[in-house]
Computed example of a mutant assay.
Amino acid sequence: MSSEPRSNGKKKGSGNVKNGHQYLAWAFVEAANFAVRYEPAVKRVYQRKCARTMPVVAIKAVAHKLARACDHVMRDQVPFDVQRAFA
């Protein structure tokens, strides 16, 4: 008898271990909330996504776009361009 959790012959309880840094994800969600409030281009992307999904999924999508843009800015040493990130 093994000590690992199993159900219906399948190993359970070990998925989703690489889902990112929780505090960094929180910071990008907070930044996304402010971006949606104050930037019209970001608000359009958010509203388009909200029409198809739940608002929490839409804000997370905006946060993900901000995270990718932040990575681009830091990696290539270029200024942030809203039109490039949210066109």
Rank of each mutant, 00 (worst) to 15 (best):
K43Q: 15
K49M: 13
Q47Y: 08
K65P: 01
N19I: 13
E39W: 02
A32L: 04
G20E: 06
A58L: 02
M54H: 11
C70F: 13
V45T: 13
V42F: 03
W26Q: 12
N19D: 05
A51F: 04
K18C: 05
K65L: 12
A51M: 10
K60W: 01
Y38A: 08
N19F: 01
V45N: 09
K60D: 09
Q47C: 07
A61I: 03
A32G: 08
T53Q: 09
Y23T: 10
K43R: 15
L24E: 14
R68T: 03
P40G: 03
R68H: 12
R44E: 13
V45I: 15
K60P: 04
A61D: 08
N33R: 15
Y46E: 03
F28L: 09
A25D: 11
A27K: 11
P40R: 06
A41Q: 15
M54G: 07
K43H: 09
Q22Y: 07
V42N: 02
V17T: 11
F34T: 08
V17A: 13
K49Q: 11
N33G: 12
A32S: 07
A61N: 08
F34S: 14
R52E: 15
H64N: 10
N33M: 07
V57W: 01
K60L: 05
F34Y: 11
P55R: 11
E39C: 15
A67Y: 04
D71I: 00
Y23S: 13
C50R: 14
I59P: 04
E39H: 04
L24P: 03
G20F: 00
N33K: 15
A69K: 02
V36T: 07
I59E: 09
L24T: 11
V56I: 09
R48T: 09
V36Y: 02
A69E: 13
R37Y: 05
R37D: 15
F34I: 03
I59S: 09
L66Q: 01
Q47T: 12
K18R: 15
A27T: 06
K65N: 06
V29N: 11
A41G: 03
C50N: 06
A25N: 15
Y38G: 04
A61W: 04
F28D: 04
M54V: 06
Q47S: 11
C50K: 13
V42H: 01
H21R: 10
E30H: 05
Q22D: 09
V56H: 12
G20A: 06
F28G: 01
V17G: 05
V17F: 03
I59H: 01
M54W: 05
E30C: 10
